[in-house]
Simulated assay, not measured.
Amino acid sequence: MEEKESKQTLYLVMGGRVTDPRSVTFNDPESIHVAGVYSTYEDAESAWRGNAQRTVDDAEMKYVIVHLHKLLDPEA
């Protein structure tokens, strides 16, 4: 009997200076700060929140959570 492998979830938290606070177009993609890759959304959200709060006074700084598992397996 084959055991079905569960899908791995991965979340990337990254941020940097954006051209417009309403967008996610980064001014200098090479200088994006990668906070880390997390296996749970809760951990990713905690990292995102910490970095976003640290830069709250700078409207041009933005942190985001990227669902890497959706990019790696778009059919899932």
Rank of each mutant, 00 (worst) to 15 (best):
E42K: 08
M14N: 07
E42Y: 08
G16D: 04
E60Q: 04
N27F: 14
E30K: 09
A35H: 08
V13P: 06
Y63S: 00
P29W: 08
M61N: 07
M14H: 15
D28E: 10
D20W: 10
V37T: 08
S46F: 05
D43F: 02
A52M: 03
P29Y: 12
E45G: 02
A35N: 07
R49L: 06
G50V: 05
G15P: 06
A35W: 10
D43Y: 01
Y38I: 11
G36D: 01
S46W: 03
T55C: 10
S39V: 05
G15M: 08
Y63E: 00
S39D: 10
S31P: 01
K62L: 03
G50M: 02
S31A: 09
V56D: 15
R22K: 15
S39Y: 15
E45M: 06
D28S: 14
V18H: 11
Q53C: 07
A47W: 00
D57C: 00
P21F: 01
S23P: 08
G50Y: 09
F26A: 00
D20N: 15
V37C: 08
V24H: 15
M61D: 02
A47G: 01
A44V: 06
S46N: 07
M14D: 06
E60T: 07
E30M: 11
Y38W: 09
V56Q: 13
R49P: 09
